[in-house]
Design a protein around this nucleic acid. Structure first.
Length: 1089
RNA sequence: AGGCUAGUGGCACAGCUUGGUUAGCGCGCACGGCUGAUAACCGUGAGGUCCUGGGUUCGAAUCCCAGCUAGCCUACCA
């Protein structure tokens, strides 16, 4: 089958559907993998998207990057592992299900519908979304192993995470510890740092007076108070001390008959200016107005001491009557209700005296441990006060803020009560403000392996470099121990069994181990067994003889995905594929994953296998809206991938995402820019249509081309060189992950090299009938350039390239792959000719400037000129002109091309330089001026160039002029126009000779006939009969060119006449008739098929 | 508050590593041209405090410091 003529416009919807059906029907993805099965391995690990709903542009970009790189790698010959992954456990899904089932809290989950049911609902939810998201990714043309993805709810996968926990235990990196951690009172679970979002939020900001017990100042009898600032009044019931920085200065300030103690540096911030100036106008003795200033001292600094002096002072706990427990504390612990030294105290905000509640803040907790304060955290899992806080019992902590504020006001212990707007941590999913509680949790001791983690970070190849050396390094460097236990249901159960009798724990590493150790017979499936609630019921025996029960927690979901490197390969249950694919050559995710997946894999990797599981990481950016703001539902600026695919198609979206910016920077999503990309695709399609139009007409088959039947011109060798350079450069860019370089080079090639230049150069040759070797040379080169182009573009935009491949290759060649994506990434180093490419660059500049010159003289390109002269001092440019003279002749429509280092026909006009001569010559100035105006500038210039001076004899005086004294204007001869280009000038001879006029008129005529052919909607190859009616002058001008005209307009016959047409065979209705005016000539053209 | 990254005509980007003529390209805008790829193309023009302020240098969009804005990340704002 020959090459087929193509649809005139690019219909992305139709093509993409057709191609995706083709892939599906013929299992092309599997075929490609089969083809590369013996190739060298390239292992890639997909960062698992969370199955909570729809994909967005960010996830689309993520997958497009992966797909493009991996398609390239496959074409390079690699056997690529590209299993898709899904993150399916965790709180976000629990929340969605809670919402769906209208459940308010954990109690309702456990009692209303039961854990069993709840977990099943979560599973259904996750699977449903996994499926719909898979379809969305497929619609982008993303090729991954969608049939066998890794899923974090898969029992075999989960076993691998148990194995990692066991490894951690073996290395003594697993601890159960009482610590203050961030807690979500809605989800009733611990949260890791990675699960906290920050939002602006309004909170109370109160300054509380803590009465000093006894007195510090001896010289007065006023009551003294420590002034303490807090934004969380609800933590005051757990206040056990006040921290000060011993190095700071603290002042005792007298105000309103009491003494306040606070940091000296913060006096003005907290208390306001010390002095108020009252101004009043009075009349003085002279009757003039005068301003009288009176100073009022608003407070008085009575004493200033070092913080050290305050240490160990005691205060009366303000809520002692409300909370009796504090009396106990005060009696049992020496440091309770005292001033203690704390390095964490700063002067940025507050008063320099810090409320310290060891149960409600990590720093406070450290203080508590250091000074032997009780870790008092009288709040339960749902954020409700326990009975330990007397009056406030059974109330949700945040709701007590106002009550406490009132109580303090009633005791006159509130100095100031305001509101503050600040960033506050909230639960990443339910957005409930977090609270800090002291609880026992399980931790991985990351701080102990941090050094090795940093060592591993430095071994990884990061793109860009700073992602690893800066951002990720800093994050790991600051890492705290990782809280991995969650008091939830839908997740990987923590495989730790605790003895009810002794302290012993057992960490189970696999299902078989559990089955072996279980005291009861297990009849559940692996899936059931490894999930809650079934696994909760399994008891095993302790070495002490007692029963061990599982810790009821589940694992942090970040641990789920963190073990993906080996869990997706079911290691250590299965070892073979692990040996084949681990560690991974490449991963890529957005920069938010610094704290997420990059980190969780590194941590669990060092624990399990003593190394980072990835060798190369691309950290990519985010997709922002047009203004550069984050896309969010609340701002209403979210653009969905479906919307873009609907309007522009997946290929254009893919190209755009890889084109808009560097992959590691953020993309501003601008609709208008998609139009740009669309335009490029239209032009590509146009070139394709142009090619198929002629190639199908001539039944062109590239397989039949050989040295004997085709001739290649310079421009043919040039486009072939360019196309091979393109393949080389794009391949290099895709390999280095510089996708923007690849797309920009392709864009340049399509627009500049192929469409605007090469097609323009060969237009005339395609119009030739018969199997002319010169025409076939153009076809062959155009074909070859197109094939290189679609190969280079295929990893980026896989549909349109497949479509073109179907027609241009599969329809004609005997030797083809079933899909373009099975092709090898091949180019010919031999065909790359940098010298020729450089010469063509010069040529384009020159030809553009000829067009400019003609334009400025209003001399149409359609009219030939007898000669143009290229002037340059650069011999490379002149060589290029001489070598590629024919192209200039053709494109500039000139009979001759001349070259020169200097343009001799240029005449010079000498002018006096008034600046130098004026002062010197004074009155003689006029004489010189007149002389120069009449003189031959060229002679003067020659003289100056030769001798450096020019002497004039005037009225008996000799005046010597030097180079600076004379300025030259240049003047073009008549019938000459010029323009500059980068490296020289062109001079165009516009003199019209009879021969030129004859040609010009012929071409004008041809243009009109072509225009009419198009009006008539004739086929390109259709022949016509033409009659031209014009005056004798015109017919004389064109008659000598009759043969050329006939050929150009595909006429069977042409008749030139100056008379009315009135013979009997003539019928007006047979003809399409149009009247024209060309310059001063009026004519009528008659055309019939 | 700290870290990383970015800031270049109305819009989107290049140039910055290695300082050096007149800061480039595309879109948009204005004007003109072309017309067998034509919903395409070509030419000309207007439009720039290269985020701001300092510094280094003969010379800074480029190097250094400080600040502002945006994105991401982090933080014990008690």
């Amino acid at each position: 089958m020959p090459i087929q003529e193509t649809e005139k416009s690019f219909n992305h919807k139709e093509i993409e559907k057709k191609i995706q059906d083709f892939w599906k029907k013929n299992n092309i993805y599997d075929e490609v993998n089969l083809l590369r099965g013996d190739g060298p391995k390239y292992s890639f690990l997909d960062g698992p998207p969370y199955c909570s709903g729809n994909i967005h542009l960010g996830t689309a970009w993520n997958k497009v990057i992966k797909d493009t790189h991996l398609r390239y790698k496959s074409m390079e010959g690699f056997n690529v592992r590209r299993q898709a992954g899904w993150d399916m456990h965790g709180l976000p899904i629990e929340h969605k299900v809670e919402e769906l089932l209208n459940l308010k809290n954990k109690q309702e989950i456990e009692e209303k519908i039961g854990i069993d049911n709840f977990v099943n609902q979560c599973k259904d939810f996750a699977c449903k979304h996994k499926n719909s998201m898979t379809e969305q990714f497929k619609s982008l043309g993303v090729w991954m192993d969608w049939k066998n993805p890794y899923m974090t709810l898969d029992p075999q996968y989960m076993e691998s995470s148990w194995w990692t926990m066991q490894k951690a235990h073996e290395k003594d990196l697993l601890v159960n510890d009482l610590r203050v951690i961030s807690w979500c009172p809605h989800c009733e679970t611990a949260l890791a740092a990675a699960e906290i979002d920050y939002e602006d939020k309004e909170d109370p900001s109160i300054y509380v007076k803590f009465p000093l017990k006894g007195e510090f100042l001896t010289n007065n009898s006023l009551k003294e108070y420590f002034l303490v600032w807090t934004t969380t009044p609800w933590t005051l019931p757990a206040n056990l001390a006040i921290s000060v920085n011993p190095d700071f200065k603290y002042s005792f300030v007298k105000k309103d008959d009491e003494i306040l103690i606070l940091a000296s540096n913060l006096l003005e911030t907290v208390l306001g200016p010390q002095i108020k100036i009252h101004k009043s106008k009075i009349l003085n003795d002279n009757g003039e107005e005068e301003i009288l200033e009176e100073k009022e001292e608003l407070y008085e600094i009575v004493e200033t001491v070092n913080g050290e002096k305050l240490l160990n002072l005691e205060y009366d706990y303000p809520l002692i009557h409300e909370i009796p427990k504090h009396t106990d504390f005060n009696q049992k612990f020496t440091n309770v209700h005292k001033i203690l030294p704390g390095g964490h105290v700063e002067l940025g905000e507050g008063t320099g005296l810090v409320h310290t509640a060891p149960g409600h803040g990590p720093d406070d907790f450290e203080m508590g441990k250091k000074y032997d304060l009780p870790i008092f955290s009288p709040v339960d899992e749902s954020g409700v006060y326990t009975s330990e806080v007397g009056k406030y019992e059974n109330k949700f902590v945040k709701s007590v803020n106002d009550l406490i504020i009132d109580d303090l006001k009633n005791k006159d212990l509130m100095y100031k009560h305001e509101l503050i707007n600040h960033r506050y941590g909230v639960c990443w999913r339910c957005k409930t403000p977090i609270i800090y509680l002291a609880t026992k949790q399980w931790f991985l001791k990351v701080t102990e392996i941090k050094k090795e983690m940093l060592n591993q970070v430095s071994k990884v190849n990061w793109v860009p470099k700073w992602a690893g050396s800066g951002r990720f390094h800093d994050w790991v460097d600051n890492a705290k121990d990782w809280t991995i236990s969650r008091q939830r249901y839908w997740g990987i159960p923590i495989p730790i069994w605790e003895c009810s009798n002794c302290d012993n724990i057992d960490v189970i590493g696999s299902l078989s181990e559990l089955k072996e150790k279980s005291l009861s017979k297990i009849d559940a499936s692996d899936y059931e067994l490894i999930h809650r609630p079934y696994v909760d019921s399994i008891e095993i025996e302790c070495t002490c003889g007692s029963k061990m029960n599982r810790v009821p927690d589940v694992l942090d979901v970040w641990m789920d995905s963190g073990v993906a490197p080996w869990a997706s390969l079911y290691y250590p249950q299965e070892k073979e594929s692990f040996d084949e694919w681990y560690p991974y050559d490449f991963i890529t995710e957005g920069h938010d994953q610094t704290r997420g997946w990059f980190y969780s894999q590194l941590g669990s990797g060092v624990i399990s296998l003593d190394e980072a599981p990835y060798k190369k990481v691309l950290m990519h950016g985010f997709v922002l809206d047009e203004q550069g703001k984050k896309m969010s539902k609340s701002l209403g600026n979210v653009v969905s991938p479906e919307e873009v695919i609907e309007k522009y198609g997946a290929d254009i979206l893919r190209f755009y995402l890889l084109w808009a910016n560097k992959p590691w920077e953020d993309i501003k999503f601008v609709w208008d820019e998609l139009n740009n990309v669309k335009k490029m695709f239209n032009i590509l399609w146009n070139v394709y249509v142009f090619s198929t139009t002629y190639m199908s007409l001539d039944n062109f088959n590239p397989d039949n081309c050989n040295e004997n039947n085709i001739v290649l011109r310079d421009e043919d060798r040039w486009i072939i060189s360019k196309a091979n350079t393109l393949l080389r450069d794009v391949g290099d860019a895709l390999n280095r992950l510089y996708f923007h370089d690849a797309t920009r080079k392709i864009n340049q090639f399509i627009l500049e090299d192929l469409s605007r230049w090469y097609v323009r150069l060969i237009r005339g040759r395609t119009w030739v009938e018969s199997d002319d070797p010169d025409k076939l040379g153009a076809y062959y080169s155009l074909y070859s350039a197109l094939i290189s182009l679609i190969n280079a573009l295929s990893p980026i935009s896989p549909h349109i390239t497949e479509e073109i491949y179907e027609n241009l290759v599969k329809n004609v060649s005997n030797n083809f792959n079933q899909s373009i994506h099975m092709n090898n990434w091949e180019f010919s180093e031999e065909d790359i000719n940098p010298e020729l490419e450089e010469k063509m660059d010069y040529l384009r500049n020159i030809i553009d400037s000829v067009a400019r010159a003609r334009d400025s003289a209003k001399y149409k390109l359609r009219w030939p000129v007898s000669d143009i002269t290229i002037v340059s001092q650069d011999s490379r440019i002149l060589d290029a002109v001489n070598d590629l003279e024919d192209i200039i002749k053709d494109q500039s429509n000139t009979k001759n091309v001349l070259t020169a280092y200097e343009f001799e026909k240029l005449s010079f006009i000498a002018k006096p330089n008034l600046k130098t001569l004026g002062p010197r010559l004074k009155g003689d100035m006029g004489l010189v001026k007149n002389y120069l105006a009449k003189a031959d500038g060229n002679l003067i210039k020659n003289e100056l160039d030769d001798t450096g001076k020019f002497t004039i004899g005037l009225e008996g005086k000799l005046i010597e002029l030097s180079n600076e004294d004379i300025l030259f204007d240049t003047e073009l001869p008549d019938d000459m126009t010029s323009a500059e280009f980068d490296g020289g000038n062109v001079f165009v001879n516009t003199k019209i000779t009879p021969e030129i006029l004859s040609e010009a008129m012929s071409r004008e005529l041809i243009r009109r006939v072509q225009d009419m052919r198009k009006d008539m909607d004739l086929d390109v190859e259709a022949n016509i009969h033409v009659i031209i009616k014009a005056n004798n002058e015109f017919t004389n001008l064109v008659s000598s060119k009759e043969e050329i005209i006939i050929n150009e307009i595909r006429a069977n016959s042409i008749a030139l006449t100056n008379e009315e047409i009135c013979n009997s065979n003539f019928n007006d209705n047979d003809y399409y008739i149009k009247n024209w005016k060309i310059e001063e000539y009026e004519l009528s053209i008659f055309i019939k098929r």
